[in-house]
């Protein structure tokens, strides 16, 4: 029984005076307890919108949500605002991209942790403070007894993200969604935060949805990987299978655009040509067709379906041939 089951999730933004915009289109995936699932894709592919939809954080007006999100047997999309508030932070936690702006600048970090502990774990302020210091210690914040009374702007970027992780894990949620948790950080700090995250989730058996545009992050962390393009999942595979050979031309392109240490000298990096703005509508054909090296006529006229193929799910008319798909050693 999956912990989280997302079925056919779609999000359409409707605003007066503009065309409805489908940001997420029939996305399905599931997360088992304790599992780490990656959601990968370029900017604008709908990763954040997917996670906000799961958390029930999309604006009420202007966003039309379809499909279903089941979290340990409860349908989340039909919960009342109050019921959702009781679950958020306790059952489902979230870590956002920008650690500075995600913290309230006018209250101490201690208060931002104790507020959650008081809310969901019924602690008194005193008990919560003790627990908060322990949590800060556990996420590796130096000198937590002193730091607990500091304001967010007194911490460094990496420390802030540690604080956010401590807050998100304070109530031991069963599922944590991390939306690009390292993008705003220095590279050396990125690695520290990632290993902290993976250490904590495995320690507490928390399931993790890791949202990133960085396949390198996925390689080190995820069990299952979903690759999104233009609001749809285009390839889903186990990490090992995906990195052994990526069959979807988009995934393949992503992997080829990563610098490799063991690449033959002088071999040029091949970035994916064009940009998301070239996309065509999924209703019309394959959204990736204008940028795809494998595109044929059928791609422009017939939307590909997500189908099981080669031990994975693929949405493509002309997948990369197994022989060419080898990307072993890409990372």
């Amino acid at each position: 029984m999956a912990l989280l089951d997302v079925r056919d999730l779609s999000v359409v933004f409707k605003r007066k005076g503009t065309r409805p915009f489908t940001a997420v289109d029939g996305v399905s995936f599931s997360v088992e307890p304790g599992q780490t699932v990656g959601l990968v894709g370029e900017s604008g592919s709908g990763k954040s919108v997917t996670s906000l939809a799961i958390m029930g954080l999309l604006p009420k007006r202007g966003a039309e949500i379809g499909g279903s999100v089941t979290f340990s047997d409860t349908e989340l999309l039909t919960l009342s605002d109050k019921q959702l508030r009781d679950r958020r932070g306790r059952d489902l936690g979230m870590v956002f991209q920008d650690p500075l702006s995600s913290l309230n600048p006018v209250i101490t970090i201690g208060l931002q942790i104790t507020e959650v502990l008081e809310r969901h774990r019924g602690m008194t302020r005193k008990e919560a403070r003790v627990e908060a210091a322990e949590l800060l210690d556990r996420v590796g914040l130096p000198d937590p007894q002193r730091r607990i009374d500091e304001y967010p702007h007194q911490l460094s970027g990496g420390m802030r993200q540690r604080v956010l992780i401590a807050i998100a894990l304070a109530c031991r949620p069963k599922l944590l969604i991390a939306d690009e948790p390292t993008t705003a950080l220095d590279v050396t700090i990125q690695a520290q935060i990632l290993s902290l995250l993976s250490e904590l989730v495995s320690e507490t058996d928390t399931a993790l949805i890791m949202i990133t545009h960085d396949l390198g992050v996925v390689a080190g962390l995820c069990d299952d990987v979903n690759v999104m393009y233009g609001g749809r999942i285009v390839e889903r595979a186990q990490r090992h299978d995906l990195f052994e050979r990526s069959r979807h031309p988009y995934t393949h392109g992503l992997l080829q655009s990563i610098p490799r240490l063991n690449a033959p000298r002088g071999e040029p990096l091949t970035p994916i040509r064009g940009s998301v703005s070239d996309n065509i509508e999924w209703e019309q054909g394959c959204a990736f067709a204008p940028r795809c090296p494998n595109a044929t006529d059928v791609c422009w006229s017939e939307p590909p379906e997500l189908k099981a193929d080669d031990g994975r799910m693929l949405r493509c008319h002309n997948p990369v041939a197994i022989g060419d798909a080898v990307t072993e050693g890409a990372l």
Partner: peptide, 10 residues
Amino acid sequence: HVLAATALGV
């Protein structure tokens, strides 16, 4: 940060 607080069920 208000979104983050909302995501924590505050």
